[in-house]
């Protein structure tokens, strides 16, 4: 039964993935083609415009992805579509888990599409040379840096990114789950989004005031960097977990489909 949940959720995202990915890769290819135009005043202006469009499309794709994930959750769980969703014979937590996992995977796939488009743009260009120099510089820093474990560093950065994504999506879910009890569900979700954002910022500021002076003191080293990265990942995870538990409770015990 739970497998079927994932199937239908995946089918929903596939509808959106194909046009979005096609648009992004298409813009990258068009941008790449314009690079081949001979240089003159007009083509320089055209190239600049197209590069701007390309960069904007990357940001738009990610933002659009978050919007789709958010709307999917809100509409299928708290609007009239929720009658279909909440009467299927699965636990409320299974619904939440399915939407979260599929939402995260959808965003990761969009990031991979963005990466692919950057790769397309960088082929045979100065950008490739610049990227190559950056990676070589980083590798050199790792080789010569004392106590910096490359593998651990990559794991920490990846976890930070993953937990940040989880936290972002769960932030929206939690705001929707709390706001759905208000007269205007959308207004309630937006209001609680900013309230939760404020609480996060406050907690983050307190932690920074407590820990940063200690960490950035005289004994700063590569080990300190590992500790900071791990701490940041843990902080994101803790916030994501809090949002998850609140959302699960609200969906199970405080559902409002009016």
């Amino acid at each position: 039964m739970v497998r079927k949940l994932y199937k239908h959720e995946a089918l929903f995202y596939l509808r959106w993935f194909i046009p979005i990915a096609s648009a992004c890769i298409g813009i990258a290819l068009i941008s790449k083609l314009t690079m081949l135009f001979p240089n003159n005043q007009i083509t320089e202006i055209l190239k600049s415009m197209i590069i701007s469009v390309y960069i904007s499309s990357l940001f738009a794709m990610i933002v659009f992805g978050i919007v789709i994930v958010s709307l999917r959750f809100f509409r299928s769980m708290f609007t009239h579509e929720g009658y279909f969703t909440h009467t299927i014979p699965v636990e409320p937590s299974a619904l939440l888990n399915c939407k979260l996992i599929c939402g995260v995977l959808f965003m990761l796939v969009l990031v991979a599409v963005a990466g692919t488009s950057v790769f397309i743009m960088s082929l045979g260009q100065e950008l490739a040379i610049v990227l190559n120099q950056i990676f070589k510089g980083l590798a050199s820093a790792f080789r010569h840096g004392q106590g910096l474990d490359v593998v651990l560093f990559v794991i920490e950065v990846s976890l930070c990114a993953l937990f940040y994504l989880l936290r972002t999506i769960l932030h929206v879910y939690c705001a929707c789950s709390i706001g759905q009890r208000m007269k205007s569900k959308i207004g309630g979700a937006i209001m609680w989004f900013f309230i939760l954002y404020g609480i996060q910022q406050g907690a983050g500021t307190v932690l920074e005031l407590v820990f940063l002076p200690v960490l950035l003191g005289d004994n700063f080293s590569t080990v300190t960097m590992h500790i900071m990265l791990s701490g940041y990942a843990l902080y994101q995870f803790a916030i994501a977990l809090t949002f998850y538990l609140i959302s699960r409770y609200r969906i199970k015990n405080r559902l409002n489909l009016e």
């Binding site: 509409r75 009239h80 579509e81 929720g82 279909f84 009467t87 014979p89 489909l257």
Partner: peptide, 20 residues
């Protein structure tokens, strides 16, 4: 709960089907 939803068929008083 899960087991009762298997034996109950519900028609709500609103349009619950997703338009897409």
């Amino acid at each position: 709960g899960v087991e009762t939803k298997k034996i109950v068929s519900f028609l709500p008083d609103c349009d619950f089907l997703a338009g897409w």
